[in-house]
Design a protein around this nucleic acid. Structure first.
Lengths: 149, 149
DNA sequence: TTATATTAGTTCGATATCGTACTACTGGAG
DNA sequence: CTCCAGTAGTACGATATCGAACTAATATAA
């Protein structure tokens, strides 16, 4: 394949990623209360899977959003009592975000509703397209992430 | 594989898509002037490849953003003289967005700078991860898109 | 131990996003 | 032709995003 076509393919890759992101965020946000965002939901899931909690900075690295945006998102999650934010005893500049039981409950309920909404898509596609592309996506994400410095 | 693991994999797929989207948007936006957004850049590319132009509604379907957001983005691109917006003679409710020569020029220059910035990533990864995942992404995008009604 | 640089998070302000409700236009039914 | 239901785009307003500058705490150096 010509290098030109390869570049083109990379470009189309990023375009598809952008559109899928739009489609899935919109679909998910339709289920979420108020103005809660797909990224906020992702953060909640991340925290539910990590009972020890994470700092805002760790989260903004994990989701690649500016820390100033993270401040806002965490404040919103805290307002809904889905997470707690307490100062880190090991470093008083820092905080630790943890999910609450309500947060875990909320996540579970939302994921179930989302699964229902996605059921037609999954039964049409089957798990293979996701299974096959996931390792490649992870590799690309890791490389892009390491490159950033 | 258990159905539970399949669901989990789908979830991780969407998470990776979200993070890659963040990474690449941020990287791209660092090259773009002012507050120009990765989606706006995508729209410009779309229009450059379609000299006959498209209506705002076609564009908002293609990129899966609300038409009210599209109004704003197109106004911004027009302000920068990268596209023109004229009323559609066949339907006076409608408009047609077309790229200008400056738009095409700007796209070319930006893509070259972006390619340079991505060169280390591409030389590390090679084209395969993109090539292998693209058909799956397209399939998933099309299915999600058809589902939406 | 100071002094300085660095780091975590927030505040502030400019801009982007997008839902609701609107206007202008079209096209089909009668 | 005359309605009128439906469609393209926009105005407006509430909220989200995120860069720059800031504060407080910590790490490093002398």
């Amino acid at each position: 394949m010509k290098p030109e076509d390869e570049t083109n393919e990379v470009y189309r890759f990023f375009t598809e990623v952008g559109i899928i992101n739009q489609l899935i965020s919109t679909k998910l946000e339709a289920f979420l209360p108020g103005r809660m965002t797909a990224t906020q939901f992702g953060i909640l899931g991340h925290l539910v899977r990590r009972p020890e909690g994470e700092t805002p900075l760790q989260l903004s690295n994990a989701f690649q959003v500016p820390k100033t945006s993270m401040t806002h998102m965490l404040a919103s999650l805290e307002n809904h009592a889905l997470i707690t934010l307490e100062t880190n005893p090991d470093d008083k500049r820092s905080k630790i975000a943890r999910s609450t039981p309500q947060g875990a409950e909320f996540l579970k309920a939302s994921m179930e509703r989302m699964s229902e909404a996605l059921a037609p898509v999954l039964s049409e596609l089957g798990p293979e397209p996701f299974h096959r592309s996931l390792p490649n996506l992870t590799l690309i994400r890791e490389t892009l992430d390491n490159e950033r410095d």
